[in-house]
Write a protein that binds this DNA or RNA. Structure first.
Length: 423
DNA sequence: TCTGGGGTCCTAGGACCC
DNA sequence: TCTGGGGTCCTAGGACCC
């Protein structure tokens, strides 16, 4: 008996979260925008039906949005993170062998459930998630992750499946796979799709029957694994305890172009502080810091971008040191005379915070820094992000990312708690 | 005017060593 | 007289994901 996997995926996740908290959004087209209210990152079914594409810049569809009274919201990541946790906790009650794959998806191992009617079980999971969290989900079942992804797509797009599709027991798999465009296969992005189409491979079925050597040569071992998975040979195991993070990044596009070193320093200082918070939340310390900046590639103005990576003498998780390091870096690559659009700070070479190796010439008082960071995080956690912050991050922050249409902090701020009236 | 952010994995090529 | 080869580590870049 081969193993079976279910992929559970929340429908239109960000838009669905907004609807849970604001029922007025039901039945209306809803879109959620990325940082800076730049691009569409989530769409309700009604918005999809209007032809609004994923990733489209908001300014390009502004008249369409207005004409159809589309409800437009900025991203509210605190809300989505909370809702995600509720969904995952619900799933765990049904199936403890699960891999949380992303904010809105989980793979479930159904190997121990083969005596059941799996479709029926999936319908029960789906109904329970809806009842407990308000989030609609779809479930795809198959022998491998890649096939489960395809099954999930069928469940989402075929109304009479009622949100659950079992590809394993499907009688006409070949015909079904032949209706899946190759660019819809998990792991086939724009580049591979174009390449495969040029070689006459247009569907998931054709990719499944592709020549192994050909795939190995042009798409590497990743491509070969993908093809094997399409054939029902599991190559991507369920990963219940994800590997520790390899890097932590904080980067943002500016709300308006940055033209002075002072503003750039403020931004980079804020990003370093934010990345340092994430670092401590994961109980990690960093040895390698990368800073980068770039101008707006969509514009016809002079272009410049640069990146600098350097290694710290001693691994650290202290905001003060990391800001200082990031500022030294950005000062070296900053050039006058450009309109900067984006900058960022990346931490790599992460080590566990409790095994920091000191060095002979280390002059920092580590115990003192540690106490300071614990206090800083506790205050910001209690009273809200940025209650305490470093002066180098600036006060005015005219470069800051814009969120003009953010919904309230329903789940993370008492004053935004939703109020329910009953009659 | 206006085009996101945060990740992972793999590969090729250079530096270095023995 | 006539320029080795293999292993390891690191980095940059490319592909993909949500």
């Amino acid at each position: 008996m081969s193993s079976l996997i279910a992929l559970l995926d929340c429908n239109n996740f960000y838009a669905s979260c907004e609807r849970v908290m604001d029922p007025k959004l039901h039945g209306k087209p809803v879109v959620v925008l990325s940082n800076n209210d730049g691009c569409v990152v989530a769409r309700s079914n009604e918005a999809k039906a209007l032809g609004i594409g994923m990733g489209v810049p908001e300014f390009q569809i502004r008249s369409l949005l207005r004409a159809h009274d589309v409800q437009v919201l900025s991203s509210n990541y605190a809300l989505y993170g909370d809702m995600s946790q509720r969904v995952m906790e619900t799933l765990e009650q049904f199936c403890p062998d699960l891999e949380v794959y992303s904010i809105d998806e989980a793979f479930l191992s159904l190997s121990g459930f083969t005596s059941r009617n799996l479709s029926e079980y999936a319908h029960r999971i789906r109904a329970t998630v809806k009842r407990w969290t308000g989030i609609p989900v779809s479930v795809g079942i198959a022998e491998t992750k890649t096939l489960a992804k395809i099954a999930n797509r069928v469940a989402k797009r075929t109304p009479d499946t009622d949100g659950v599709f079992d590809l394993f027991t499907c009688s006409d798999r070949e015909a079904l796979l032949n209706r899946i465009p190759v660019n819809d296969v998990w792991g086939i992005g724009p580049n591979y799709a174009r390449f495969l189409q040029q070689h006459g491979i247009l569907t998931a079925l054709q990719l499944r029957h592709a020549n192994d050597q050909f795939i190995r040569k042009h798409m590497g071992v990743v491509g070969l694994r993908l093809v094997m998975e399409l054939r029902g040979v599991s190559c991507l195991a369920l990963d219940q305890c994800p590997a520790p993070k390899q890097g932590i990044t904080c980067s943002r596009a500016f709300g308006k172009p940055v033209t002075t070193l002072t503003e750039m320093e403020e931004a980079v200082s804020s990003y370093a502080a934010r990345a340092a918070e994430k670092l401590r939340a994961e109980k990690l310390a960093v040895t390698t810091v990368t800073v980068f900046l770039k101008t707006n590639e969509f514009k016809d103005t002079p272009q410049y971008s640069n990146t600098l990576t350097f290694t710290l003498p001693v691994a650290t998780d202290t905001t003060t040191e990391l800001i200082r390091a990031a500022l030294r870096g950005i000062q070296r690559i900053y050039r006058e005379g450009y309109l900067y659009k984006k900058a960022g700070v990346m931490f790599t070479g992460l080590v566990s915070a409790n095994q920091i190796q000191g060095d002979l010439f280390d002059s920092q008082d580590r115990a003192r820094s540690k106490r300071l960071m614990v206090a800083l995080d506790a205050i910001n956690d209690r009273f809200g992000a940025d209650t305490l912050r470093y002066a180098s991050s600036g006060l005015v922050k005219s470069w800051r990312t814009r969120f003009h249409r953010r919904s309230p902090a329903y789940t993370t701020d008492w004053k935004d708690l939703p109020i329910v009236f009953t009659s």
